[in-house]
Design a protein around this nucleic acid. Sequence first.
DNA 1: GATGAATGAGAGTTCATTCAT
DNA 2: TATGAATGAACTCTCATTCAT
Lengths: 199, 199, 199, 199
Amino acid sequence: MRTENKHTKIIAAAIKVFAKKGFFNARISDIAKEAKVADGTIYLYFNNKNSILLTILEEEFGKIVEKTSTLIARESDPAAMLHIFIEQHLRAMKKNKNLAEVLHTERRQAGKMGKDFRAEKFNEYEGILTEIISKGKKMEVFSQNLNVDVLRRIIFGALEELSRVWNDSLETHYSVEELSSQLLATVFAGIHEPLPPTS
Amino acid sequence: MRTENKHTKIIAAAIKVFAKKGFFNARISDIAKEAKVADGTIYLYFNNKNSILLTILEEEFGKIVEKTSTLIARESDPAAMLHIFIEQHLRAMKKNKNLAEVLHTERRQAGKMGKDFRAEKFNEYEGILTEIISKGKKMEVFSQNLNVDVLRRIIFGALEELSRVWNDSLETHYSVEELSSQLLATVFAGIHEPLPPTS
Amino acid sequence: MRTENKHTKIIAAAIKVFAKKGFFNARISDIAKEAKVADGTIYLYFNNKNSILLTILEEEFGKIVEKTSTLIARESDPAAMLHIFIEQHLRAMKKNKNLAEVLHTERRQAGKMGKDFRAEKFNEYEGILTEIISKGKKMEVFSQNLNVDVLRRIIFGALEELSRVWNDSLETHYSVEELSSQLLATVFAGIHEPLPPTS
Amino acid sequence: MRTENKHTKIIAAAIKVFAKKGFFNARISDIAKEAKVADGTIYLYFNNKNSILLTILEEEFGKIVEKTSTLIARESDPAAMLHIFIEQHLRAMKKNKNLAEVLHTERRQAGKMGKDFRAEKFNEYEGILTEIISKGKKMEVFSQNLNVDVLRRIIFGALEELSRVWNDSLETHYSVEELSSQLLATVFAGIHEPLPPTS
DNA sequence: GATGAATGAGAGTTCATTCAT
DNA sequence: TATGAATGAACTCTCATTCAT
């Protein structure tokens, strides 16, 4: 339990520090100070700086994947699934603003970090979205004209950018529901002014 | 003339290196080698490593801003403007794949780079999109229910993510028109299967 | 205790290296090697190269100031005080030949080192000499014709130059007493051949 | 004549820059800018940075040596010679304040500059003073108790320190005559209050 | 397990010097 | 001669990682 505690404390500290300074500007000693442990202690729980980031991505996304999967499993309607996915994502990101910053910033870096860097859970997470869209197409609920990969990117990119509204530096105070419904409205109904009802 | 050349060569080299390794993993000596100049030569054209990135963002975005602004100025229909914006963005990113990677990766880092870091042109670019959406709402072409800020994020995020399809590491071969039309279709008409024509 | 040791070792090494090569020609790695520590270790104890020199000047002069002040405090005769000042100065410089070299070489540089460079103790030290001379004048032991500032410079300059006789490169083997008495004889009695006793 | 001009301009510029920043902090480009020539031009007249300093010391001291020698050659009284030496030294230093700074600052550095550094004229200059004192002793005008080397140091050190009063940073406005007479008074008559005339 | 002083490889940057023009 | 852009060796300083306690 002591051990569990330290691991958790270091991860929490790292998320905070990475969010504030970015991975490359964050120093191990910053994390150690934030976690109130000695620098060396960090190396009892993590192999190196990279693996701290990797662990954050894996563990935190693991939680999201698990929760989202569970909720989606209960649904059969792809539209409802998409709703859930979007809402859960935004909810998770709002809950842990620092995490949102870390995830999105470092996702791009990941490929440049070194050979041993693989964010398995992240791929799994993207897979869920791909699955939803595929199912939607197959069930002929979503348009057949849409490319699955492209749509996944559209939604994912939009989510990523939307998640940033909760950063400390921004003054906007959107609710999860607000953003969620705007995104859904856009992708589902389009941005056109509704045509006047045909008499 | 010599001077102009070196500046350009260094910028081109830096875009390549930043795209491949990311800003923080890129070494000045990597850029120098790529540009076939001595390390010290770089400092005749740039104050420091940061300012190389800043210059890339400003100069390259400057070009895009200029081109896009010109094209949009000719239009009066917000939907057509949006079409142009999206297409131009994707076109620019496909043309310079490395730039796309740099832009998107480092945009997030920018805030963590130090006080003297300001990407003016970037803000200007975002402003164009905001303007289009505002106009669309005002002209009652776009839905009154849409929040301008939120929609801008949705489109921008989507574009950002879509732009990444041309990265060397990915094997997909989308055309600009393809991506462009998919995104427009999604945001304009929604992803729903078109309702069967009412008889 | 470890800490105290390292600080002292680095200072001692720096004095040696500065004396031999001068501040600007001295490399951090030279000092590190001399002190038998890693280069990086030096930065655990000092902010930068400048501050090593500053510390030397402050700490070493601090000792001299303290000792000299104590001894002088016991005296009331300005002539005796001057004798003490001169003797103590020469004694300190002979004891630490390298320090003498550093002090005198770098005193001039100090003003050109950067804003944050202030050798407080040094000023304090000069103040002692000024005080002695002022008192001598006030008590009418020293000539009223002498400008305090000028005399301080004469004595200080002489001491500075005399202190250099103990440098390794020179073969002279003067004793402190010898130099001290010569200087005192000169400034007190003048360099004239004593006039033949008036019959 | 063009050539002569450039050499002179560079020397003048170097004296100014060295005085202001010190030898090590002075950049070749500073000197070039001050002299209004290109950096590379400096290397048409001097082998390297060191040799600029060396040339300054040699040329400028050469002038002083020549002038002082001439004046002293006319005298036979060592006391008068000493008077001339001191006055000439101070006069030269006041005339070229920057030179004074350079000379005194760099004299100490000289030994640490590298093998090829020899300031011949400087030794010659010191020789003049040594000669005067020796002669004074031999002629039994100066005290037999004084060590020539020591006295030379006393006088030289005093002169060095006194010369600094004209630095820009200091506000004192002594005349050459004032300093000269104070120094002579001190070394000749001592600093004692003149004994009351015996009745 | 926990510490934090110590390490040292490696980074960005400077600037004396060179050389094509 | 004169230029000044280009060079690259060498510097100071940082910080992830180690290891004796």
